[in-house]
Computed example of a mutant assay.
Amino acid sequence: MLDRRSFSGLMLAGAAAALLPRAARAQGQPARNVVLVHGLFADGSCWSEVIARLQAAGLNATAVQNPLTTLEESVAATRRVLARQEGPTVLVGHSFAGMIVSEAGTDPNVSALVYVAARAPDAGEDYAALAKTFPPPPASAGIVFDGDEGRLTEAAFLRDFAGDLPQARAKVLFAVQEPFRKALLAGRTTQAAWRAKPSFYAVSSEDRTIDPDLQRFMAKRMNARTIELPASHLSLISHPQEVAGLILEAARGAA
């Protein structure tokens, strides 16, 4: 039986926990949900092989269909999906979607962030200027525009974006790539959720779309739990087991 002092201590602890922001309570707690956001030259289906592994582990996984129009609209689409989740949620971004993760990841139910060969700017940082301090990635030369819409040429897609995938598979992905709007590239984040949330990063060491050393710099700056994969920019497709494993680690509440 609890004495009066013990009972009072439990009551105070419970009251203190109730006053904590949901963000503080979510961090360090096992997550039941994973929300995955794709970047340029892709759509939500690029997460299919990772999703299958997360579902097999008992997690509820949802891919955002990123409109790739403006940063604000892409963040809004992600927040709508986050609003449908119940309980702690791991937010995952590939490539450009790292900016979306950094902005939307302040949601109180987001318990951890996972970056997969992704941009990870600080709040207000000019990512383009940061990227210019590293060698230009070959894929940049393969971007072409039809008016306001940008996409990768087939040669650049196969060589510089999906270089470690079987060519037949890469050609299918090229056929369904989602064009992006020029305005998307002008956006800057106003938040850096990685400064307050446990963060994880999967570096692609053979990446020709985001320089691997830039990825390493961003991962180190955020003090992320980091793995390195001998992969192209599409590690989520060529190494789905390892990417899913990192997400599962984040979901278990590992800091």
Rank of each mutant, 00 (worst) to 15 (best):
185 L>H: 06
229 L>K: 08
96 F>E: 07
27 Q>P: 05
94 H>M: 09
91 L>S: 02
156 A>W: 07
111 S>W: 00
38 H>G: 01
35 V>L: 02
142 G>W: 05
72 E>G: 06
111 S>N: 02
220 K>I: 03
210 I>R: 09
193 A>E: 04
238 S>T: 12
136 P>L: 10
130 L>R: 14
135 P>G: 12
71 L>R: 02
111 S>D: 03
10 L>P: 08
97 A>W: 05
219 A>M: 11
25 R>S: 13
79 R>C: 07
231 A>C: 10
214 L>T: 06
222 M>D: 10
71 L>E: 06
238 S>E: 11
217 F>G: 06
198 P>F: 00
41 F>L: 09
208 R>Y: 07
65 Q>R: 14
75 V>H: 05
88 P>C: 00
244 A>F: 06
235 S>Q: 14
194 W>A: 04
85 Q>S: 08
238 S>Q: 10
29 Q>V: 12
190 T>V: 13
247 I>N: 13
92 V>T: 04
58 G>Y: 00
223 N>V: 05
177 Q>F: 06
17 A>H: 12
94 H>Y: 05
209 T>E: 07
13 A>T: 10
79 R>M: 03
171 K>L: 15
105 G>V: 01
119 R>L: 15
166 P>I: 12
140 S>W: 11
21 P>S: 01
144 V>P: 07
231 A>N: 10
80 R>N: 11
138 P>D: 06
133 T>D: 13
83 A>N: 04
63 A>S: 15
10 L>Y: 13
114 V>M: 05
172 V>F: 11
89 T>N: 00
38 H>P: 12
210 I>V: 15
195 R>P: 06
175 A>P: 04
120 A>P: 04
202 A>Y: 12
65 Q>G: 12
168 A>E: 15
39 G>S: 03
179 P>E: 01
88 P>G: 00
243 V>Q: 05
83 A>Q: 13
85 Q>E: 06
198 P>I: 01
186 A>Q: 13
234 L>Q: 14
75 V>P: 08
155 A>M: 06
19 L>V: 09
175 A>V: 05
87 G>I: 00
243 V>G: 10
77 A>C: 04
234 L>F: 08
182 K>V: 11
13 A>H: 07
71 L>D: 02
4 R>M: 13
22 R>P: 08
68 L>Q: 11
4 R>E: 14
241 Q>I: 11
53 R>N: 05
129 A>C: 10
73 E>C: 05
1 M>N: 12
148 D>W: 03
148 D>S: 06
25 R>V: 12
111 S>R: 00
148 D>V: 11
113 L>D: 05
104 A>I: 00
201 Y>S: 11
242 E>H: 09
74 S>D: 15
175 A>I: 03
117 A>R: 07
